[in-house]
């Protein structure tokens, strides 16, 4: 979503993005003239008249699980967004009984928070695992 019109979205898709992504952009390119939606989401830059790089992960109940906002010159890390979605999905599927430690990726160990784990994380999880 940006403040550009759908016509400009079409031009950008047809003339540039479709040359990077075969078949063009596979999701809706949303238009927010005037930044009304961006304002509600708190990422509209009034002074510049544009939306900053806000990224929101919204779960199947419509609840915001995470967000990140960057200033315009720095691009996002899509892999990190996907990793976070996978982590939120795991937590949701476990009905909150499992938690994903720092640096968790699919296949790595999760933690089961409870009275027995208080003060014992150091025994089963090492900081090196955050960087694997």
């Amino acid at each position: 979503m940006s403040i550009d019109s759908v016509f400009v979205h079409k031009m950008w898709n047809d003339h540039e993005l479709s040359k990077m992504v075969s078949g063009g952009i596979p999701f809706p390119m949303l238009s927010d003239a005037g930044g009304k939606v961006g304002t509600v989401y708190g990422i509209y830059d009034d002074a510049a008249g544009v939306e900053t790089r806000g990224r929101f992960i919204i779960d199947p109940d419509g609840v915001v699980q995470g967000f990140e906002v960057l200033t315009p010159p720095v691009g996002r890390n899509v892999s990190e967004t996907l990793r976070q979605i996978q982590a939120f999905q795991l937590v949701r599927n476990s009905k909150g009984s499992e938690a994903t430690p720092s640096g968790w990726k699919p296949g790595k160990m999760t933690l089961k928070p409870g009275p027995d784990l208080v003060g014992k994380v150091w025994e089963i999880w090492k900081t090196d695992q955050a960087f694997e």
């Binding site: 940006s2 950008w12 927010d32 939306e51 790089r53 990224r55 929101f56 919204i58 109940d61 996002r76």
Partner: peptide, 14 residues
Amino acid sequence: LGKWVVLCFYPGDF
């Protein structure tokens, strides 16, 4: 609703 959504804002096309 019922799906995971990633909503991305950006400063502008191009």
